[in-house]
């Protein structure tokens, strides 16, 4: 009995440790992403950003978190309480669970799924429930309108996103993320970014729209909807929504890096430069950081899109673009052009 329990634990504990480690790192990254956002947008607008709590304001995220945790959770009257509390949880869980299949370094991944890409699509499509439920359970018209906008937007852009991912699958001939990264390893010339540039643009912009970030943040349009779907949320429940939005930003950046920018593989691999040619987590982190900067840059640069134009962009521009490019890609594959025939992989 004792050895049986030991077997179970020795099988279970390393997985659990990995999950906790990734979760903690993601949450800490979210904390400092909010700090980076305020600092970067501050400098872009000739301000200093947070600079009072700790050196250079470095402890500001913790001050914010503790403020939110200590605040009262207000439950709106005649709201559906269970769903009201469940909604933020439903928003955060997919944002964290998707990290299970992202390869961090060669052979370092929590779950090496064969259908990893489908897993990602399936989980990210669940995130919309948090928003819909928040809007409905709040029993508030602003929240409901925000939720409707946001859900329609997410469902629309998911199609373009899925099509862009089909391009990646066609190039890599696998759904396994580890294999997709391996397919792109060996220098910047092998990245899918180059042959699939239109799909990368579609994927990333759809990612911005899916996370409801500026310039696609009509779901929380302050001028007409106050704060959209989370208008009734306060304290910890609001903090969880906030966490989910930023975790989703990091996730979209990580996925774009993994699928189009070679993940953990070094852009200088094969050149023989001592430290820079080595693959590893540092490269993945660097790519994620660059894409996150683009997220913030977009927010500081563009005014908010009009709602009907968001829909037009998703349905009438992105979906045709991806369809055309999938045709072009098929021709390239049939004509044996491009970096898909590496050999020795399968």
């Amino acid at each position: 009995m004792n050895s049986w329990l030991n077997g179970l634990l020795s099988w279970f504990l390393p997985h659990l440790a990995g999950i906790i480690l990734v979760t903690v790192v993601v949450i800490l990254s979210v904390a400092y992403l909010t700090y980076a956002e305020r600092k970067i947008i501050g400098y872009m607008q000739s301000r200093l950003g947070p600079n009072r709590v700790g050196k250079w304001g470095l402890l500001q995220p913790f001050a914010d978190v503790f403020k939110l945790l200590l605040k009262e959770i207000v439950l709106p009257e005649r709201s559906s309480v269970i769903l009201f509390v469940l909604a933020p949880i439903l928003a955060i869980v997919p944002a964290l669970a998707t990290w299970a299949v992202i390869p961090f370094a060669p052979h370092v991944v929590l779950a090496n799924l064969n259908a990893g890409l489908i897993y990602i699509l399936a989980l990210t499509s669940i995130g919309v429930y948090g928003i819909i439920l928040a809007g409905w359970a709040s029993n508030s018209k602003y929240a409901l309108l925000g939720a409707m906008r946001s859900a329609a937007q997410i469902v629309s852009y998911e199609i373009a996103m899925g099509f862009a991912l089909i391009g990646v699958v066609m190039a890599a001939r696998t759904l396994n993320l580890e294999a997709i990264v391996r397919d792109q390893s060996g220098g910047i010339g092998h990245w899918f970014l180059i042959p699939l540039l239109p799909l990368f643009v579609v994927y990333f912009v759809s990612g911005v729209a899916e996370t409801n970030r500026a310039p696609f943040d009509v779901a929380e349009g302050e001028s007409e909807l106050v704060a959209g779907f989370h208008v009734e949320y306060s304290g910890t429940t609001f903090a969880v929504f906030f966490l989910a939005e930023y975790a989703n930003m990091i996730l979209v950046s990580a996925l774009a890096s993994t699928l189009f920018l070679g993940g953990w593989s070094s852009p200088l691999a094969g050149t023989g430069i001592p430290l820079l040619a080595a693959n590893g987590l540092a490269w993945l982190a660097a790519k994620i950081a660059v894409l996150l900067f683009v997220f913030l840059w977009l927010r500081a640069t563009f005014p908010r899109y009009r709602y009907d134009q968001i829909m037009r962009l998703g349905w009438k521009v992105f979906i045709p673009v991806t369809l055309v490019w999938l045709g072009v890609e098929s021709l390239m594959i049939v004509g044996r052009v491009g970096p898909w025939f590496r050999g020795g992989l399968r």
Partner: peptide, 25 residues
């Protein structure tokens, strides 16, 4: 059947029931 299971979540949970929920709400 991992592929089928994930596709079930993707299609039914992620798309069909979201639209259903829309209408019901």
């Amino acid at each position: 059947a991992e592929f089928l299971g994930l596709v079930l979540v993707l299609i039914y949970v992620g798309a069909v029931l979201v639209l259903l929920l829309f209408v019901v709400m």
